[in-house]
Protein backbone atom coordinates (compact mmCIF):
# COMPACT_ATOMS: atom_id res chain seq x y z
CA UNK A 1 0.00 0.00 0.00
CA UNK A 2 2.87 2.36 0.86
CA UNK A 3 4.58 1.57 -2.40
CA UNK A 4 1.42 2.32 -4.38
CA UNK A 5 1.06 5.66 -2.63
CA UNK A 6 4.68 6.51 -3.34
CA UNK A 7 4.25 5.55 -6.98
CA UNK A 8 1.21 7.85 -7.26
CA UNK A 9 3.32 10.67 -5.82
CA UNK A 10 6.13 10.02 -8.25
CA UNK A 11 3.77 10.56 -11.21
CA UNK A 12 3.63 14.25 -10.33
CA UNK A 13 7.40 14.58 -10.00
CA UNK A 14 7.86 12.69 -13.27
CA UNK A 15 5.55 15.11 -15.09
CA UNK A 16 7.42 18.02 -13.51
CA UNK A 17 10.89 16.89 -14.56
CA UNK A 18 9.52 15.98 -18.00
CA UNK A 19 8.14 19.50 -18.44
CA UNK A 20 11.46 21.01 -17.32
CA UNK A 21 13.41 18.84 -19.76
CA UNK A 22 10.92 19.70 -22.54
CA UNK A 23 11.37 23.42 -21.95
CA UNK A 24 15.14 23.14 -21.70
CA UNK A 25 15.57 21.09 -24.89
CA UNK A 26 13.17 23.26 -26.88
CA UNK A 27 14.93 26.46 -25.93
CA UNK A 28 18.37 24.90 -26.47
CA UNK A 29 17.31 23.94 -30.01
CA UNK A 30 16.07 27.47 -30.61
CA UNK A 31 19.09 29.22 -29.10
CA UNK A 32 22.15 26.91 -28.81
CA UNK A 33 24.32 29.75 -27.43
CA UNK A 34 22.49 29.83 -24.04
CA UNK A 35 23.06 26.10 -23.51
CA UNK A 36 25.42 26.41 -20.53
CA UNK A 37 23.21 28.78 -18.57
CA UNK A 38 20.06 26.80 -19.41
CA UNK A 39 21.62 23.56 -18.19
CA UNK A 40 22.25 25.06 -14.73
CA UNK A 41 18.67 26.32 -14.52
CA UNK A 42 17.36 22.94 -15.68
CA UNK A 43 19.37 21.09 -13.01
CA UNK A 44 18.14 23.57 -10.41
CA UNK A 45 14.49 23.15 -11.45
CA UNK A 46 14.77 19.37 -11.41
CA UNK A 47 16.32 19.56 -7.94
CA UNK A 48 13.19 21.40 -6.75
CA UNK A 49 10.85 18.86 -8.32
CA UNK A 50 12.94 15.92 -7.19
CA UNK A 51 12.76 17.09 -3.59
CA UNK A 52 8.98 16.47 -3.62
CA UNK A 53 9.42 12.87 -4.76
CA UNK A 54 12.12 12.35 -2.12
CA UNK A 55 9.82 13.67 0.61
CA UNK A 56 7.35 10.95 -0.38
CA UNK A 57 10.13 8.36 -0.28
CA UNK A 58 11.25 9.39 3.20
CA UNK A 59 7.67 9.52 4.53
CA UNK A 60 7.07 5.98 3.26
CA UNK A 61 10.26 4.75 4.97
CA UNK A 62 9.70 6.65 8.22
CA UNK A 63 6.18 5.62 9.13
Amino acid sequence: MNVIGYALGVIGAGIGIGLAAFGATTSMARQPEVQGRLFTIFILASAFVEALALIGFVVVLMQ
Binding site: F48, A51, L54, I55, F57, V58
Partner: peptide, 13 residues
Protein backbone atom coordinates in the same frame (compact mmCIF):
# COMPACT_ATOMS: atom_id res chain seq x y z
CA UNK B 1 14.95 22.11 6.13
CA UNK B 2 12.86 19.27 4.70
CA UNK B 3 14.31 19.60 1.18
CA UNK B 4 17.92 19.30 2.34
CA UNK B 5 17.20 16.55 4.86
CA UNK B 6 15.16 14.41 2.45
CA UNK B 7 17.74 14.69 -0.32
CA UNK B 8 20.61 13.53 1.86
CA UNK B 9 18.61 10.86 3.74
CA UNK B 10 16.90 9.35 0.69
CA UNK B 11 20.11 9.38 -1.37
CA UNK B 12 22.01 7.44 1.27
CA UNK B 13 19.15 4.98 1.78
Amino acid sequence: AIRLFCNMFAGHI
